[in-house]
Every structure is written in structure tokens, then in C-alpha cells.
């Protein structure tokens, strides 16, 4: 259910974001993107700025469990919602199964698109643990990879899905 976003601004405002389960209070201008809030205000450098115009997926994070392009999302619009970034996946030193699978299947080269790819796959597998290669492709079709790690990304996602079952 979309919640009504209070009108904020135009001057800088205080907002509290729920990032990886932690309440994080920041003071930002309302036009700040979620990506800039994460990177510049919260120091979370996992999500990458590759295009800043919604065309590559490198900034993908989850908002209430759904993958969004953080560069196309206003930070203030995510107040009161659960934001998850790649930094929040590993727990107690243990990697998330998708992260494990990305390493085992060599699903990255330079790694710059990787946080975004992983978040898209995590969202997919949470929604539907039983997936086919086509499902995976659809889920990461908005995540470009210039190094061309695609075959291994698909293999990693399928392996992670199998392990979760």
C-alpha cells in the first residue's frame, strides 16, 4: 500500500530513513535522490552511480522489498519505508546465499554493477523462490553489465534459488 508522502521542503528538511533496519536521521534537500542520500549522507557506497538517469540498474536497492533505481527515487519519498542495500545482506559475518553464489559462479568481473545485480536477484528470490532462467533474466534485464558477466549472473541466481529451497 503506498503511503502518502508528507509535503517537504523546499528548504532542507529532517528525514529519518530506515536503512537496513536502522533508523538514520539526515538533513537533506527534498530533491536529493535516494542514491545521493545513501552515498553522500550515509556513506553507504555499495549502490553505484553509473548513469544517474535510470538506465543501468547499478544503483538498485530495495524499498519495502521491491527493487528500485535509487537514482530515480527521492530520498524523502522513502521515509517510513524499509530501504535495503547490499551492505545489509550479510549477517553475523555470513554471506547471503545470493552473495555466496555470485562468488562461486564468478558472476562479476569489475564488480561495479554487482551490488545492483545482487539486489535485483534477492528481490526476485524472495518473491518467488522457484525460478527459471527466464525469470532471472527478466529480473535483471534492467541491470546492465558492461563486463558481460550475464551468463554467470543467471547461473548464480539459479544456484542460489536451488540452495534456498
Amino acid at each position: 500500500m503506498p503511503r502518502a508522502t508528507p509535503v517537504l521542503g523546499p528548504a532542507a528538511v529532517d528525514v529519518t530513513l530506515d536503512v537496513n533496519g536502522h533508523a538514520r536521521a539526515i538533513h537533506i534537500r527534498p530533491q536529493r535522490t535516494l542514491l545521493d542520500a545513501l552515498r553522500e549522507d550515509l556513506g553507504l557506497m555499495g549502490a553505484k552511480k553509473v548513469c544517474d538517469e535510470g538506465t543501468c540498474g547499478a544503483c538498485t536497492v530495495l524499498v519495502d522489498g521491491r527493487p528500485v533505481y535509487a537514482c530515480m527515487t527521492l530520498a524523502v519519498a522513502t521515509a517510513g519505508r524499509a530501504v535495503e542495500t547490499v551492505e545489509g545482506l550479510a549477517h553475523d559475518g555470513g554471506l547471503h546465499p545470493v552473495q555466496e553464489a555470485f562468488i562461486a559462479h564468478d558472476a562479476f568481473q569489475c564488480g561495479f554493477c554487482t551490488p545492483g545485480q545482487i539486489m535485483s536477484v534477492v528481490a526476485l528470490l524472495r518473491a518467488r523462490p522457484d525460478v527459471t532462467a527466464d525469470d532471472v533474466k527478466r529480473a535483471v534485464t534492467g541491470n546492465l553489465c558492461r563486463c558481460g558477466a550475464y551468463p554467470n549472473i543467471v547461473a548464480a541466481a539459479l544456484a542460489a534459488a536451488k540452495r534456498k529451497k
Partner: peptide, 21 residues
Amino acid sequence: QRRVEGIAKVTGRARYTHDLR
């Protein structure tokens, strides 16, 4: 052999020039 920087890259900890503050 798995990439030695694998964990850094899948956790978002790998620091790129872009990430330097």
C-alpha cells in the same frame, strides 16, 4: 579459483575511486 576480492565485491565493501570521500 574464486576471485580473492569476491567478498569485498559482493558486500559493497570494495572501494572504487568513485567511492572515495
